[in-house]
Structure formats: structure tokens, C-alpha cells
Design a protein around this nucleic acid. Sequence first.
RNA 1: GGCCCCAUCGUCUAGAGGCCUAGGACAUCGGAUUUUCAGUCCGAGUACUGGGGUUCGAAUCCCCAUGGGGUCACCA
Length: 521
Amino acid sequence: MTKPVRTRFAPSPTGYMHIGGMRTALFAWLWARHTGGTFVLRIDDTDQERNVEAALNPIFRAFEWLGLTWDEGPQVGGPFAPYYQSQRGSLYQAAVERLLAEGKAFKDFDPPELIAEDRKLAETAKRTYLNVRRSLEMSAEERQQREAAGQPFVVRFLIPRDQKIAIDDAVRGHVEWDCSLMPDPVIMRSNGSVLYNFATVVDDAQMQITHVIRAEEHLANTPVQALIHQGLGNPLPVFAHIPFITAPGSTKKLSKRDVEKLRTSPQLKKMFDRADDIFPQLGLGDSKTLNPVMVEYYERLGYLPAGILNGLSRLGWSLDGSTEFLSLDDVIQNFTLERIVKASAGFDPEKLQSYQQHWMNQLPLADKVTGSLPFLTQAKLVPDEADESTRTLVANVITAVADRLRVFSDILDYKEFFVSDEAMTFDEKPFQQRLRDATEAVGLLKTLRDQLETVTPFDAPTLDKLVHEFVEQQGIKIGQIVHALRVTVTGKSVGVGLFDALAILGRERSLKRIERALNRV
RNA sequence: GGCCCCAUCGUCUAGAGGCCUAGGACAUCGGAUUUUCAGUCCGAGUACUGGGGUUCGAAUCCCCAUGGGGUCACCA
């Protein structure tokens, strides 16, 4: 019987959740769920003490939004608590002591300047740098003396330089390193705190992690970690290094540091522009505060977890040659490490959008209303407590908007239905073109208005019929009236079907708007 | 630069020796539908990095080259 699977994700409190990190977390989570195992969330906060809670919130929020629950970790606890590395010092301490006692690590008294010199020497000689084990050569007495004298030291793990270290990576296969090329890594700083590479090993072992699923950039850390596991007498976990996500139109890792460059990339420009359009309306800043590398960007824009999850799953993983749309359950059902693609995957906003669109279209009307309403209230277009008539209005608009609604905040593109007739603004260009410049438009509009006053019922099919008959009576083309009418009632040249728009507004409001436009010409 | 990883349409991918004159999806470009936009339907173009092997046969296996990337801290 094989041990039950335990995977983990170990973010550091950076103040936001990176979309690529989310995808890594998702893969680890999926493997746990697929196997009926356990998913652990552990916080790598060895360095920063300040504001950990605040810097963590966006991370928890992202997991919660996407519905990726963790079985052990912050908030829920678990048998291997605490799950904050900052609180696990004694564990690390004990492990260091043990290695020291067993001669598998040593105290290095060389000052940093000396190390830097060694390094330089190696560089000019075009040699691989290896730390000089001066302190190891010292007698035990001398070491003791120095320590007693309060001379600072770091603890280095002693690399067995005569050996090779290999792992069988679940996605990369057999990978091997020559230890004779590896410097002895520092595992404990002179101030007594331990380094990430060491804490991770201790934690993974103590938390009985069976599968270390993480981004490919950690592959280079792996030999050291494997060696430390060995030194500590731990069984080696299965490593699975998944490829990272690259920036659109690039072969480089998608990183938050490059946001300013990303802003101008043709693929992402639309996403940044959208942020600059929508977030201010919601009182959430703009693309400087929330951008497409952050998970929160998608949440705040009203993406569906299903869309994001589908997109993330398909980035570097596939079920087969043809399945594109997968629910989370489908992915859980079918996820295996061997189907992870080895090459890095470019982040494609368009494709993400298409997954999102698919899942949005699956949603029943009531859910679309419930999902859109918060955006309308946040933008102060409808009152906080939406009454029944507001809900009906929203439902009517969404019905008319149909699959133009891709993300919930798209509802804000149809403000014209939620603002008062007086507050509605006319886009100048179409107003000029369709009303002022089109000489016959005003006259036609006046005639049509009279008919609109009496037609019953005031619904889309009837209005449709009316306008078509009107066109025939007047001997004009439908384009001559329809565009002008659209501008008068919605202020815009594009939008939902014209007759839907009129029906949603109702007779009274439609006439008012026509009046207003006529007076404005 | 050392070490390591990777390599199929613009992008995400299918392909684990013959089913491949390489399939699907997104994007692109046509055409149809339509009051706008979106959508929908139909159609088109576009890829196995190169060179050597192995084999009756290679996108698939091996080697080399090239290209791309990651990583080289008392960061995580």
C-alpha cells in the first residue's frame, strides 16, 4: 500500500497572489484531490515579520475565491501545526544541531568579505566557485575558542563532494547533478535564522509531504534539498517541477516586476485598459493597483472561478487532444502528473477569455443577475438594497445583453439603462453623425415618435414590427432611422438590440430621451 | 560563463515508430446571418529548429549542433 498523497503550497506573504503561483498551487491541489490526499498550505515567512497578516490576505482570498480549500494550514490548523515558518524555529534549530553533531554540517567563521574574495578568484580563473572549507580544517579547540569569543559564524551543510545526486522528477524524469560542483550551502545565518532551502526540507519532511509540486525555477535548488533530506535521513519526496508561465509574446517568466513592460504588450494592453476603465468606477484604483498578473484582478473584474480554473488547468496540462472545457471536477477526475507538459507555457489572455466566455454562457439568468448586481451597486448605479424592480431591470438588461456579457463587470458597459434620462450622456461622434449630419433623421424621428406614443404593447416584437412598417411607409432604408434612434435612446452607436433597448426603457423613458436628443440637435 | 531544463501552427496543445499528405482550440483572414456591436454558422491559411544516425519505416528513439529559458545569496 502506498502512502496517502500529501502536497503543499508554500507562498511567502507578498501582498498579492500571482496568477502563475496560483497555477502552481492549483496543480498541487489537484494532485491531492485527484488522489484523495491532503493539501497543505504553509506560509514561508522566514524573512519578513512585518504585516504578515495583511500581506497574506490577498493570498487566502484568492484561494477562497477559486474554491481551493486547504486541509491543513493557517486558519484550519492541522496535526503538524504551526504552519508559519516563522513559528517553527525550534524544529529548524534541532535539525541544525543534529547535522552539526553528526558532522554533516559545520560552522563557518569566514567573514563575508573573504567569501566574496574566493568567489572573485574563482571567477577570474574561470573556475566553478566552491567555498573553501577553512573552518572545517580548524581544530575543534580553535572553533570553540572563536565561538566563545563571540565571532560570528554561519552553518553550512557539508556537500559530499565525491558523490552524485539524482532525482526522478515526475514531470522531468531522471535528473542528475555532480556534487563536486556544488558549494556547501549556508543553512543558518549568523543571526541564527535558517534559510529557505533548509526550512523547506525540514518542513516537507516533518509535514510528511509526499509530492513536492512546484515551479521549474526550483529545479536548481533540488540537488541541495535532496542532499539535505539525505543528511537528515528523510525519505525523498517525489518532485514534480512544472514549467512556468511566460509573459504573452515572450519566452520569459511572467513576473510582476515586469508589469510596466507588460502594459505595452499588444496581448495585454486590452487587459490593462479594461482595468483603467472599470476599476475607477468601482472605487478600486486602476491598473496600477490591480493588474493581470494578480489573481485579484480577475476577481474584481467579475471573472468566474470556473473560467480562470479552466484556463489555468489547460496551461501546461491537457486531458487529450480535443477537450477544452473542463469543470474543476472534470480536472480533478482526470489530473495526472504525467500529462503535465514539459515546456513552459505562454499566458494567453485571449484564450483565457474564451474559457471565461464559455462558462459565463453556461450560467442561468438568475446567477448572472446575482453576479452582476454587486458591480452595479459598487458603481453606485443601483441602490445598495436592490429591490424587486431593480432586479427585474437588471435581468431584462442581461437578457438583452446576452452573450455580450463575458465578465460581470461588463454590465457597466450598459450604464445607459441604469442612469436617469437626464443623466444619460450622448457620445458626441455618433450624435453628430447620426443626428446632426443626417439631414432627414430629425424629421423621421419626430414622425416615429408620434407612433411610439400610441403603439401597444410597448415590447420588442411590436416595436420591431412598427419600425419596419414605418420604414416601408416612408420609403426609406432601415439604416436611416435605426441608428439615429439608437443614439437618441442609449446615447451610443453600439449596444443591445435596439428594440430590446426601447422595451427595457419603456415608453415613457424612451420618449423622454428622444425629446432630449431632439432638443439637443 | 558553470550547472540544469526545454524545443509541433502566432498561442495553448494532441501525438508515447506505421492510424500524420500532423488533429483540436484560441487568435487571424474570407463568406453567410443581422438595425449596431457581439454572437452564431460555413470556409481558408499557418507548425514537427537543423544535421547526422537507428529502423523496412521517425514529429515520435539516440547523438551533435542551434535556439530559448531557469539558476548560480547569510532572498524566497
